[in-house]
Nucleic acid binder design. Structure first.
Lengths: 337, 337
DNA sequence: CTGTTAGCGCATTCAG
DNA sequence: CTGAATGCGCTAACAG
């Protein structure tokens, strides 16, 4: 009798299989776990019995014994942002290929929630945690690391977390993007920026500033907008910038969403300014080439980030990683449209 | 001593708490589960002890006993598609608010994998399953339902699964979208369609055809493209259509990705045709208004779909649902740009 | 190579 | 209202 999820009825246990195959439960367990030292013959018999009974291991029982769940907990500030979901896709692929499941939770950009989730993960005995931090707060991550949690931070890295991290060269990418705008002939260049408390926003801002400095262009605080890295916020930043006397003609946008928002403002409220403008933006998305004023994007190796994050966390789970946090800084790539 | 994830060290157990509070483990358990019949005083004492010891329930142990995991398994054909991720965002919100965790897996558009995942979910004792079916195959879903699995299908529904389902009015939406193109003056209207094995693609095709019929426009098989509902495929369909003598001037695109792909072809290879063209497409995405030729989109109530799917599955988990499958068909909304 | 035995940590009878 | 005892299903010594 094949058993499904939500088992009301009594599913077959290892004991039933043992009886059916006329061996001990220990033997069944060994077969199930490819223990080796088992006759091919007995193994076959056990497997046949298991199949006949529609036996499925009870992972709760196994976990109780082994203290391992073959599960990684994942925390993201939200799940509906393109960057995060592409990352999730890859994480899932990598983890699944190693037999691990992925418990996904949204922190809703709240540290409070993040803290709660770490506690929940402890209850659920997840083997490791991958998190995209919500803000710069790091105390809870630090505590988790000290408690022995295999933890990998991705994309953003609060100072002092002491955890493994997979990041990209935000400053370099932003700098190159900004320069390329100058290369297109623009001198009045603005920033559609993020929340400076986030390492990504801060580093990209730094890259933007560095490019200006190297180009001999004076930084104009009036040309710099900051806010949540969302569509709405990109829209507002443009609005605010054009409320001033002489706005920029080109912008470096800190991510895809603000880029969409900014473009959207130009296409609606700011139509009369939309003549000779240009954008360079972090993130190359499938729809990037279709964004009207997009000339340059900074492609992040999202798949690589996912792969590396999975690798790092599983190495730690396996105990193959020293106490020293490993920080990866992956390169970005400039794409001209 | 606060314990983290991946507990090498011995975390506090219910027994430690019992000893610390000078009560029995039964009492601790009762306090933890808000059993009621416990003196406020003892409860406080127990809670204090638990806190002092940094106690966290061991959910594996609890699940072994209760056969419940407070976890819902979720299957999607892939995780990086906007529609799915927005759905996931909502599912996570709804489930988390009821204390449920979400184990997310990608079927990679493979029924084989889908079948494997259902088995995995059984091992992991998830309380219920929410799935976006990969194809029209339904035998494994049917078996799951018959085995008692609380199962809710979303977006697509293979015939004969016998499971709860949350769908939208695909035909009505597609019909309205197609009509609105005619309302804009177009008569040569094409279809950028999906794989007809998927209920969504089939129903949207039917709506497209119905609109033409009602408008007295003869259906031209030459004007209809079919393929995977991805960007690349949308691109190819346009390419193929323009390889023919007299292509359409307006299209109904079956989803956001094919819409992006089709637009992309016009903006690159098909520039010289991109004069007086228009699109109506299923899915209203944040970037939809920015897609150059987009005049109309069909908005799906994705958040509602997520909310309802969560509700249905939890009702079944709680046993508050009869054996008869419940099929919800939510309305869509036409958006003019 | 295989069997016996003893918990893993918790919820839950059944007594009191 | 509380405690003692039992077992959920599995793995991991330890024997043989």
């Amino acid at each position: 009798m094949k058993e499904g999820v939500g088992g009301k009825k009594n599913a077959a246990t290892i004991r039933d299989v043992a009886r059916e195959a006329d061996v001990s439960t220990a033997t069944v367990s060994r077969v199930l776990n490819d223990d080796g030292r088992i006759t091919t013959e007995t193994a076959t018999r056990v497997r046949a019995a298991a199949k006949r009974l529609g036996y499925a291991v009870n992972r709760a029982a196994r976990s109780l014994k082994t203290r391992a769940t073959m599960t990684v907990g994942v925390i993201a500030p939200d799940l509906a942002t393109d960057f995060f979901m592409i990352l999730m896709e890859r994480l899932e692929f990598e983890l699944a290929s190693k037999g691990y499941g992925m418990l996904i939770c949204s922190s809703r950009e709240s540290v409070e929630e993040e803290r709660r989730l770490l506690g929940l993960f402890a209850e659920r005995l997840v083997d490791g945690v991958i998190a995209i931090p919500a803000t710069a707060t790091s105390a809870h991550f630090k505590a988790a690391v000290e408690a022995g949690t295999p933890l990998v931070l991705v994309d953003r890295s609060p100072r002092g977390a002491g955890a493994d991290a997979v990041l990209v060269d935000n400053e370099g990418g932003a700098c190159a993007a900004t320069r390329s705008l100058a290369g297109l002939g623009y001198r009045r260049i603005g920033l559609i920026g993020g929340d400076p408390r986030l390492s990504t926003a801060r580093e990209r801002h730094a890259g933007f500033r560095r490019a200006l400095a190297e180009l001999g262009i004076a930084a104009e605080p009036e040309f710099e907008g900051f806010g949540p890295m969302h569509i709405e916020s990109g829209f507002r930043m443009m609005e605010a910038m054009f409320a001033k006397s002489k706005p920029p003609e080109a912008w470096f946008a800190v991510n895809a969403d603000t880029h969409v928002g900014a473009t959207s403002w130009l296409l609606t409220e700011g139509r009369r300014f939309a003549d000779r403008v240009a954008f360079a933006a972090f993130d190359e998305m499938p729809y990037s080439p279709l964004l009207r004023f997009c000339r340059v994007s900074v492609e992040q190796p999202i798949a690589d980030m996912g792969r590396e994050a999975a690798r790092l966390v599983l190495e730690r789970v396996a105990g193959r990683a020293g106490p020293k946090p490993r920080v990866l800084r992956l390169p970005t790539k400039l794409i001209m449209h």
